[in-house]
């Protein structure tokens, strides 16, 4: 109906407006995160290398804006340094998932047949393994640590990227210009690399942003369980684990690291969702 149609157009326009807002907001939060991580390599308000038992468990003050932990270390400084490992693990994990997933997806479409079936079944199977279980298996055999965390999250990311690449590749391989190059005698992998990749780039970038957010959440959980990055390197998840022992005395210890995680993830999600809406307005309403 005419009414419904114009209503829908108005909504798209409205949503794109909202998308720009999320894009800027999400982008800004993400940028702040990266800036903080880089800054923390050169400067933090306090040094966190030494313990200071006299200043332990202080409430937020002018000197320690967010208070101190049970070793007397400055929370703000710890959070800043914690962003380093969050970003590092997020980036590596997404890179593992992206590279292996795209390769798997391309190979599956290019080869087709039983190989495609097998590859997709295998990636479906990986879907059934939650990150924490993967990390637990790796930690049980190889011991906990940041590498365990990166590999577990990275492997968990493979299926989604493989699926997206294959989905995009399928529809593109059916198009005429690809047919033409097939007729011209180009090999499948050449076609895949030349035609498919640029066309699925949009979707991959959006998914990478979302996966980055999920990776940070997963790493925080692993850090909390003690399966991720080991002390003395401060991580947000670990800080929350330590804070739990002092929950009734110093609740703010449990507040700030959680806020850091939540804002980081929120920023990345907003950015990713907005990117998706702007790059492909048809894929509509959220997830």
């Amino acid at each position: 109906m005419i009414g419904a149609q114009t209503g829908r157009f108005a909504k798209i326009r409205y949503r794109l407006g909202a998308s720009w807002l999320s894009l800027w907001l999400g982008g800004f939060i993400t940028l702040c995160l990266f800036a903080t991580a880089i800054l923390s390599y050169f400067w933090t308000p306090h040094s966190v290398a030494r313990m200071n038992m006299r200043a332990r468990l202080q409430a937020p003050s002018l000197d320690h804006l967010l208070g101190t932990d049970h070793f007397g270390r400055d929370i703000l400084s710890l959070l800043m340094i914690g962003s380093q490992s969050a970003l590092k693990i997020g980036i590596v994990a997404v890179a593992i998932g992206l590279v292996l997933g795209v390769l798997l997806g391309l190979a599956a479409t290019a080869r087709g047949g039983w190989f495609e079936e097998l590859a997709m079944r295998a990636s479906d199977l990986l879907f059934a393994f939650p990150v924490v279980l993967l990390a637990i298996m790796l930690a049980a055999t190889f011991g906990p640590g940041s590498v365990t965390s990166m590999i577990a999250i990275g492997v968990h990311n493979i299926p989604i990227f493989a699926r997206l690449t294959r989905g995009g590749a399928k529809s593109i391989l059916a198009r005429e210009f690809v047919m033409a190059s097939r007729v011209a005698g180009r090999s499948s992998s050449y076609i895949a690399a030349l035609h498919v990749l640029p066309n699925v780039l949009n979707i991959l970038v959006v998914q990478a942003t979302i996966s980055f957010a999920i990776a940070i959440l997963a790493d925080a959980a692993l850090g909390y369980l003690g399966l991720g990055t080991q002390p003395p390197t401060p991580t947000w998840g670990r800080m929350l684990k330590d804070a739990q022992s002092f929950l009734s005395q110093s609740p703010y210890l449990a507040i700030f690291p959680g806020l850091a995680i939540a804002f980081t993830v929120l920023g990345l999600n907003l950015f990713g969702d907005a990117l998706r809406d702007l790059l492909d307005p048809r894929s509509s309403q959220g997830r």
């Binding site: 925080a220 929350l240 609740p251 507040i255 959680g258 995680i261 999600n269």
Partner: peptide, 21 residues
């Protein structure tokens, strides 16, 4: 959006803080 961004274990800590402590 906030619900998605919050780690469940942190939300658990907050629940303990409010409803238990």
């Amino acid at each position: 959006q906030f619900g998605i961004a919050i780690p469940s274990f942190w939300f658990g800590l907050l629940l303990i803080l409010l409803f238990a402590i």
